[in-house]
Design a protein around this nucleic acid. Sequence first.
DNA 1: ATGAAAGCGCTAACAC
DNA 2: GTGTTAGCGCTTTCAT
Lengths: 340, 340
Amino acid sequence: MVTKKPTTIKDVAKKAGVSISTVSRVINDSKPVTNEVKQRVLDVIKETGYVPNPLARSLVTKKSQLIGVIVPEVTDTFSAEVLNGIEEISKMYNYDILLANTYSERELEIKNINLLRAKQVEGIVMICWDIDQEIVNILENSGIPAVYISKTTRDFDIYNVSTQNAPATRDMTQFLIDKGHKNISLLRTNYHISNLADARLQGYKEALSENNIEYNDKLVKSCGATYNDGYATAKELLNEGTKPDAIFATSDEAAIGAINACFDMGYKVPEDISVAGFNDVKFAKIYRPKLTTVYQPLFDMGAVAIRMIIKVIQGQDIGEKKVELPYRIVDRESVLDRNE
Amino acid sequence: MVTKKPTTIKDVAKKAGVSISTVSRVINDSKPVTNEVKQRVLDVIKETGYVPNPLARSLVTKKSQLIGVIVPEVTDTFSAEVLNGIEEISKMYNYDILLANTYSERELEIKNINLLRAKQVEGIVMICWDIDQEIVNILENSGIPAVYISKTTRDFDIYNVSTQNAPATRDMTQFLIDKGHKNISLLRTNYHISNLADARLQGYKEALSENNIEYNDKLVKSCGATYNDGYATAKELLNEGTKPDAIFATSDEAAIGAINACFDMGYKVPEDISVAGFNDVKFAKIYRPKLTTVYQPLFDMGAVAIRMIIKVIQGQDIGEKKVELPYRIVDRESVLDRNE
DNA sequence: ATGAAAGCGCTAACAC
DNA sequence: GTGTTAGCGCTTTCAT
């Protein structure tokens, strides 16, 4: 490990026989510089391997070129795929990602917002299952643009990207009904949301009533979004004696958990019970049976979020604070057509 | 969004009627300050919500409190789990994570090293399938501590954390043999490594010869570490007509790909063909059949890497440049005991 | 124990 | 077109 202290703008200036402002001009291309001088500076820069210190630059420009990203944890497949989108677009705009995990702990969420803020990030993308008004306030008062990527649409006044949850859930429910299912269990993965606020639950109910199927309380369960949550909740459901012919879990991980619960209780999927998920995470196509699910453009959600932030940073108007991206039902193997 | 410009040390000093150096002293606890004065400053800080600007601080102390982490991509389960460890420990030491994806492109790897370096990170953790001497050089010449987390042990002179690959592979091969397998196919997931340098291949061969099983070239294939790689390579293998009774892929994703390839070609796993993996990624226990694999302490690998970096930063001696963490065979469902 | 002042590496007026 | 200078927010001598 060679520890030579890095060349500064001063070194370059001296070596090139110009003033530091001239060097600054050529590296930022901010003001015209005679070609000959410019070349001389460029040569010295190449020769010395000089790289401007962004810290110093940020201090004066007030632009850190940093964007904070808060996720539950990177091993969460939903977050990881969104994060990919964020990362790629950020780099395009010369921004870097400062990463923070929350493990879905509210305290850590707040702590990390403040921490990132202190680190001078120019914007924050927050991915989590749900937020409340207090967190919205903290985000708003941070004085920097923040966008919230949720698995659900909430009516907070905050930049938000999501998919159309109610229609998506309605469509999948309809899809299940079309395939001949009557007793469709809904595993709601956003359990801290009141029924009324839950767009997905509404979508589910809508489809039911459009098809004159009575809403059955026993078939609707709240659970977390993880594999374990889905597994446990499906098991609970099955143990209660109301055997559904389909389980619709609003997260792929929970859906896969549900499938395994079915397996472990002696049911075949999809022969005995169909299972559908939500998100179309990478793993959905790998698992067997391949998961029938509603596709969400995860990568794009991250990309859109970043673009919003960058626009706000640049002072552009971005119109609607909430953007909803398209979804699509992906029919694979975990749902059986019972009409045949 | 409220955009008030943040309080600076100057504001605090004026409001508390002291000099900025005094304020600096109390926030850093660097020199004794009279209790009374200290309290006054503290009060003002609380009142104004003042937070020191780390950029300015970094500029003078030359410590950015930033660690760069380079991963193939966050959706890679191996990387994600290591990253969790890195994140958690970093935060404990008050460091933040600057994240960069490489998509396993060599160019991007180099570009990101330089980029992170420019951003003044104090250390770099690089996770990738393999490196070469040039990248080692770049890392070394960067003048900051760098540790490399690999899926394989290479003999470069660089800080490195891994598991004991040769013994682990030997053990798993032995395990497979013990379970009555004779034709064990090895899917080497580090395909850019020469046979000689591949510790895992050596471990495999060792186990074979210890059991007087002849090494069969046709059973050993190089492939990438992803699901698709494993799927394609297993299919290729099976199509070539040399049907193994076990496939040992040195990455869980590749192993799952192999299982699906078996399925799709009409073989049952583990009844017809046993499949074993490597890493014990989160998904290994979720997939069905549950994957028999070699467990690596992914989280801990990240944690250890960060500790190494922090020690180097602090100028402590850390002894061996390479640390190897323990592994363990995890016997689940994808390997059948053929002795019965 | 406290304050004044220099300076970290850079950008951005402002002069010339 | 180029140089001089102030200053970003902070830490750290060096006086006092």
